[in-house]
Amino acid sequence: MTDLTVSASTQDAADVAPKRRRRRYRPGEVGLAALFLLPSALVFGIFFYLPFFKLVSWGRFESTRGGGYRDVGMAQYREVLFGEPFKDGLIHSITFVLYTVPAGLVLGILLAVAAHRQLKGIKVFQAIFSSTLASSVAVSSVMFLFILNPVVGLFKVDWINERGWSLFAAALPSIWQNLGLAFVIVLAGLQAVPEEVMEAARLDGYGSFRRLVRITLPLISPVLLFLTVVLVVFGFQAFAQIDIITGGGPAGSSETLVFKIFRENQNYGAGAVLSVGLFVVTFVVTALQFAILDRRVHYDN
């Protein structure tokens, strides 16, 4: 009797065990995982999520003349996000991206294609082309501030202080500084293209330009997508260039979204709404990029 019950219960346990074991965690392992995840979790919680959720709630409050804040509900969101400051900032940010991203892609491809060949001393040229990696945004901005300076600079035009040109002046250091990164990334893509593919194209009588447009560029399109994403992110995040070269001026003509957020960083109400706006823009841009470009990209699989 007893034997039977025992065997029955073990049988039961054996039936249940596989299901249950999947759900049951070893306490030691969970503890260790918690310990390992804690540092990252603290940083992400305190410096990423907490400020973000605070910002979302601060957007309801408008700063008053007395230095206090009053709850205005969604009114401030509506005012700022559909008003002039946000629209201007967004247009300037997009313009900045349009100045820097296509230039970065085209120049990156040009440099990489030129330097992707078997020539003696090609390493020297590759080193020169990637050399702008050594400069920081601040360094390149200071360089261009004085190159473009109407008094000591090398040009007679004064782009920095001209409304239509100030944003372009601030974009120039970015274009220059991105050369190294764009070159390095596209070159890595080119080097990953199998030699046989190019050889086959050559035998089919494709000229070098047609080979580039019809075969090479489609083959490295994932790399170009990656570069585009990186450059667009850089473009939207650009700050030092504007801070150093134009200071947002003249007359706010080069104030991008990030610059406006920085300028409003003491005004927790409007600054918060602008930040939430930037979050939405970043989100939408990233999603759009992947949705549009992903379909045209050739992935070998």
Binding site: F47, K54, L55, V233, V258, N265, G271, S275, F279
Partner: peptide, 21 residues
Amino acid sequence: AAALATLLLPLEVTLVGNIAL
């Protein structure tokens, strides 16, 4: 997913909140 989602919260977005903190 929560860790990766922080990529959508670059410093530029959380700046005002972080400065206050």
